[in-house]
Design a protein around this nucleic acid. Structure first.
Ligand SMILES: [Zn+2]
Ligand SMILES: [Zn+2]
Length: 829
DNA sequence: AGCACGCCGACT
DNA sequence: GTCGGCGTGCTC
């Protein structure tokens, strides 16, 4: 028998299986999914058993050295999932395996240098040898390393190098190895470990005469008697618990010495909810007929175990959550588990509350704030079936539930479901893959479905369920559009229209709250005519050209098309055609000028970089510690703010004109979400959207809460421009310190890709965009260029990258550049 | 990736 | 002549 092993080294050339023979001692124990140590060239490395076969494809094989843990780190299903991910998302098998494994079990190696013999004799011999060679400066340092080593016998090479520098350590290591005086050993360790606790109990045979024992001890050793008394009524008890009850460790120890108590070490499962328990039970709600109808279909799929994908399009407040919760309940009744994905746990505390309120102790929440140990324990609890509902952000899609009965992807349109690092998976796709493997349905829920999902639903690939009515028929908030071109005409140069200023003043007067939105950071600027709203776009890519102050130029970040900023607007001949860019700081400054008495909170990348900063800002605002909250999209998903009666969107244009093919979609989503923030139960809120493009379909349809209307127009632009869902995209970002090199590599790569594309069937009209400077042209001192490839089917991307980038020798030729290959990029920003 | 091997310049 | 620079090539 041979073991097929994937080694834990991150290199494309090593991304394949290696065959190892299995020594007889391991033959019975070795299984697929285990972590092993294997010899690899001159070193020992850790790896994963991905298969057991009768034949090896190579002549010579070496033995598996060691099994790291008897418990496999992935099941056959998860292995298949990893294989699928590495193929689909163009990542290495190790990268894919690492996300399906228990967190924290990835081994890290440490190298130690040791002397074979700690006596002075050997030390002197080595010292003499050092003195014969090397220059004096080096000699002193090597001698210092030797001195330390002779005292400790063994030391970690990394820390030695940190203290003395690389050279002397390497030098000494070589001398020791060459003469057999010492050696280098590698040790492997995982970051996460089981937490242990000592448990104290009475031996079985002691129960009967415990009273007598206590009585006998009471005089001479009252403390010990006390311990026994506690144990007599409640055994076993953990050592920390005993201490808390006032028992001294010496008393416990003495009892153990006498053999009157037993102490065992058991695992102490870390409990992240310790602080916030219990949650009040929230009983199921009566469903509306709309909800009941949807639930009936989903329940049917759960019962029959069919892997249907439901796209649940429900307006804000239409009661999607209750449908989710009752569907989960169905799965639990079937003896199965459910996975519930949310975009970001930190921003959806009320959703987590509701799930826990319904299912209580059966819920595990995978929070990014969990410690590694907590996550490790949660993972194993889930694996053992001790937990029935798993709530978490994208990585929770890998929760190893034993019997998957349902997956919910809430706010399925959110781009946070796409991981930006390897493996660059989309949690929605992984969810669907898992549902097929397990035979269970998936619910994709959103008030503003992604164009891709909605398209697939219309094509009949997903089951479309619509819940257009809000519970209790609450009216949708009124959305007012303010035409910024008119403001310009009327001589208002402030970033706030007179309408918005009036409304802000009125709300402040009433002591209610205001949220002002600005999308993203204003790093991307575009050129707009202040009189007619015309925005300069690329004629090839249909995205806004990005303004560069450098030489009054505009550039398309998809294809590289360049143009000069026009002197007059090509549509209305106005001279007021200028770039536009806006940051939250600027909004705050203007607010302070206009309303000096208002208390303002700002929430953006700058103010939320510290951990837990968002939560603080949001809770402060909810507690009424400020009148106005200024922020980016982040707030849109956040908590409910009942006192907010006015929401202002400073400029829909910053979102609308992001140089990205999803700009219109993102804008529609943003405006809809924002509208959902305004007003609660009693008072319907007001939403004011300022824009230079009041007639744009994203703005118009969002105002009327008309998703189908938006979709109908958007899908046609996508079709025309061959953007998803009519194509799949692949983006390659090339970055490096040498700009010329980056540009050269980008152009060669583009040529190679072009050549490869000629062989692709079902070619699109314009399958290659670029090379062009990336929207963030220089990031951390590295120059960035990108190209974007479109194809009907993403299967072509794997072989294409393989030929154009690797087999062509380009990757080797430019080995100091970074080539970031991203399939299905969520945006090309 | 990480380690060995190997082939050249600048020191004893 | 030796030391040590890092280009090249391989790992079941
Ligand atoms: Zn104009
Ligand atoms: Zn273009």
């Amino acid at each position: 028998m041979y073991a097929e092993v994937v080694v834990n080294l991150l290199n494309r050339k090593l991304d394949r299986v290696f065959h190892y023979s299995i020594p007889s001692a391991l033959e019975k124990r070795l299984r697929e999914g285990m972590q092993v140590l294997v010899p690899f060239g001159p070193q020992t490395v850790d790896g994963y058993v991905v298969g057991l076969t009768e034949t090896a494809e190579v002549e010579k094989t070496r033995d598996v050295l060691e099994i790291v843990e008897e418990e496999p780190v992935f099941s056959r299903e998860m292995l298949a999932l990893a294989r699928w991910m590495s193929k689909t998302y163009l990542c290495t098998m190790v990268d894919a395996l690492h996300v399906v494994m228990p967190p924290g079990l990835k081994l890290r190696s440490k190298k130690f240098l040791s002397l074979n013999n700690p006596d002075a004799d050997l030390k002197n011999k080595i010292f003499a040898k050092i003195m014969t060679g090397a220059d004096t400066e080096l000699k002193d340092k090597v001698a210092a390393v030797l001195e330390l080593l002779s005292v400790r016998g063994k030391a970690e090479i990394k820390s030695l190098e940190q203290q003395y520098g690389k050279k002397p350590v390497e030098y000494l290591a070589r001398i020791l190895k060459e003469n057999g005086w010492g050696e280098v050993n590698t040790r492997f360790a995982a970051k996460a470990r089981k937490k242990k606790v000592k448990q104290v109990m009475l031996p079985e045979n002691e129960r009967d005469d415990i009273e007598e024992l206590i009585h006998n001890l009471a005089l001479k050793a009252p403390k010990q008697a006390e311990v026994l008394k506690i144990l007599a009524s409640d055994s076993p008890v953990t050592l920390p618990e005993l201490k808390e009850m006032g028992c001294s460790p010496t008393a416990v120890h003495a009892l153990q010495e006498k053999g009157l108590i037993k102490i065992e070490e058991i695992e102490d499962i870390r409990d992240p909810f310790q602080e916030c328990r219990p949650v009040e039970y929230e009983p199921p709600k009566q469903l509306t007929s709309e909800q009941a109808e949807v639930l009936a279909d989903i329940s049917c799929s759960i019962e029959r175990g069919t892997s249907d994908v439901f796209l649940l399009h429900g307006a804000t407040g239409s009661g999607k959550t209750e449908v989710y919760l009752q569907a989960i309940d169905k799965a639990l009744i079937m003896g199965k588990q459910a996975i519930f994905l949310v975009p970001e746990i930190a921003l959806t505390p009320q959703m987590v509350q509701r799930v826990r309120g319904r299912f209580g102790e059966k819920v595990a929440v995978l929070h990014s704030a969990l410690s590694l140990g907590e996550r490790f324990d949660q993972w194993r609890q889930i694996k053992e079936g001790a937990v029935q509902v798993v709530v978490g952000a994208r990585s929770a899609v890998f929760a190893p539930v034993p019997k998957l009965g349902l997956i919910i992807v809430d706010e399925e349109h959110e781009s946070t479901y796409k991981q930006e690092e390897n493996p660059k998976y989309h949690a929605r796709e992984v969810a669907i893959y898992r549902s097929r493997m397990a035979g269970c349905p998936v619910i994709l829920g959103s008030a503003t479905p992604s164009v891709e999902s909605y398209y697939l639903a219309r094509e009949g690939k997903y089951k479309l369920k619509t819940m257009p009515n809000r519970i209790g028929n609450r009216p949708m908030p009124e959305v007012h559009i303010v035409d910024l071109r008119r403001e310009m005409e009327q001589g208002n140069r402030s970033i706030f229209s007179s309408r918005l200023q009036e409304e802000i003043a009125a709300v402040l007067q009433k002591k209610e709250q205001i949220i002002l939105f600005l999308n993203r950071r204003g790093y991307s600027t575009f050129v707009v005519c202040r009189d007619c709203g015309f925005v300069v776009k690329c004629r090839y890519c249909n995205i806004s050209l990005t303004y560069h102050a450098h030489g009054e130029k505009m550039i398309c970040h998809y294809c590289g098309y360049k143009a000069k900023v026009p002197q007059v607007c090509p549509v209305c001949r106005s001279k007021h055609i200028r770039y536009f860019g806006l940051g939250t700081q600027r909004v705050e400054d203007e607010i302070k000028k206009l309303f000096p008495q208002a208390r303002v909170l700002r929430m953006d990348v700058d103010t939320t970089s510290r951990k837990g900063a968002h939560e603080k800002i949001l809770t402060d605002f909810a507690a009424g510690k400020a009148d106005i909250l200024i922020g980016t999209q982040m707030i849109a998903k956040g908590l409910d703010f009942p006192k907010v009666t006015l929401v202002g969107v400073i400029s829909a244009d910053t979102s609308l004109n992001l140089p990205d093919f999803r700009a219109a979609e993102r804008t529609f989503q943003l405006l809809t979400q924002v509208a959902g923030r305004a007003g609660r139960a009693g008072a319907p809120g007001k939403v004011i959207v300022q824009t230079y493009a009041p007639a744009h379909y994203s703005v118009r349809t969002a105002q009327k809460h008309d998703f189908p209307g938006f979709y109908g127009i958007e899908i046609e632009t996508r079709r025309e421009m061959e953007y998803p869902p009519f194509s799949r995209l692949l983006r390659i970002v090339i970055s490096g310190f040498d700009e010329n090199k980056v540009i050269r590599a980008a152009h060669i790569l583009a040529e190679n890709v072009q050549a490869q594309l000629r062989g692709v069937e079902e070619r699109l009209e314009q399958p290659l965009l670029g090379p062009a400077p990336a929207p963030l042209t220089k990031l951390r001192n590295k120059y960035r260029w990108q190209l974007c490839i479109k194809a009907k089917n993403r299967k072509v991307f794997g072989p294409l990258v393989d030929s154009a980038l690797y087999k062509s020798g380009l990757r080797e030729q430019f080995n100091d550049l970074k080539f970031n290959v991203e399939i299905d990029p969520q945006s090309l920003l």
